[in-house]
């Protein structure tokens, strides 16, 4: 059984159904990429998995447990943690408080040694510890967003466009962090605009198109497919990958 299994998931907002029956598997210790155009429903899928929007139909199991109706905090405590789109800093709280809140919430109590571990892993955060998170640069905020999620000691990470809006050098750093985290054994579901990089790193990948999975396969396979190169890698409009 896969670590995360999604069967025929339907979800949306109000009367609008955005996801029309998604099935997807994330195997333990692997990285799975989801690519798709703007508005395809990638963020909606991650929000449903983190239990922030209702799942109308279908079933989600994580680590052998049915989480289709679970609460958002119990999902985090089970080890499924999201780094949200746009980073969502607790802007007026300090870097350290952002980490503390995360650790305390995930472990119901003290943040323990997690905070110092994160400073060792991301030294820049240590030097910024008492600054308001909102005052950090984009790259620093993304690191804090990662560190905050890692405070929960996740089994699986849901990453929603972690390289969005970052300078090329920082994009490299972000992908390095992702690769490191996978090497440590964390499973990763990665949503990326930067499809080429994501597919290159992915064990397996899905293409999400208007709320349904239109294509799936090994990352390297999809990278070679013509329709993918045309639609998501910008080969026709130019070499940039947004």
């Amino acid at each position: 059984m896969a670590l995360l299994e999604i069967e025929n998931l339907k979800a949306g907002y109000g009367r609008i159904e955005v996801l029309h029956g998604i099935s997807l598997r994330l195997e333990a210790h692997t990285l799975c990429a989801i690519v798709g155009a703007n508005g395809a429903g990638k963020t909606t899928l991650l929000l449903a998995l983190s239990r922030l929007i209702p799942i109308r139909e279908g079933r989600v199991t994580f680590d052998g447990r049915d989480i289709t109706r679970a609460s958002s905090h119990s999902v985090v405590r089970a080890g499924l943690v999201q780094v949200p789109e746009g980073r969502r800093m607790l802007a007026s709280m300090s870097v350290e408080e952002n980490l503390q809140v995360a650790g305390e919430a995930a472990h119901r109590g003290s943040a323990g040694s997690g905070v110092t571990e994160m400073y060792e892993r991301f030294p820049i955060l240590g030097t910024r510890r008492s600054l308001a998170a909102g005052s950090l640069s984009g790259g620093e905020q993304q690191m804090l967003a990662f560190a905050r999620a890692l405070m929960a000691r996740p089994k699986a990470l849901l990453l929603d466009e972690p390289s969005m809006g970052l300078a090329p050098k920082l994009v490299e750093t972000v992908f390095e962090i992702i690769a490191q985290e996978r090497a440590r054994g964390t499973s990763i579901l990665l949503v990326e605009q930067n499809a080429r990089k994501a597919l290159a790193l992915a064990d397996y990948a899905y293409v999400l198109e208007r709320g349904t999975i239109s294509l799936e396969g090994k990352g390297s396979e999809l990278l070679g497919r013509e329709e993918i190169t045309a639609a998501y890698l910008g080969e026709i409009t130019g070499p940039s990958s947004r």
Partner: peptide
């Protein structure tokens, strides 16, 4: 801290557990 986190951004707080 959790009260202030919820006040700052309820969604972010929920995603942190």
């Amino acid at each position: 801290r959790s009260i202030r986190a919820v006040a700052a951004d309820r969604v972010a707080a929920a995603l942190l557990g």
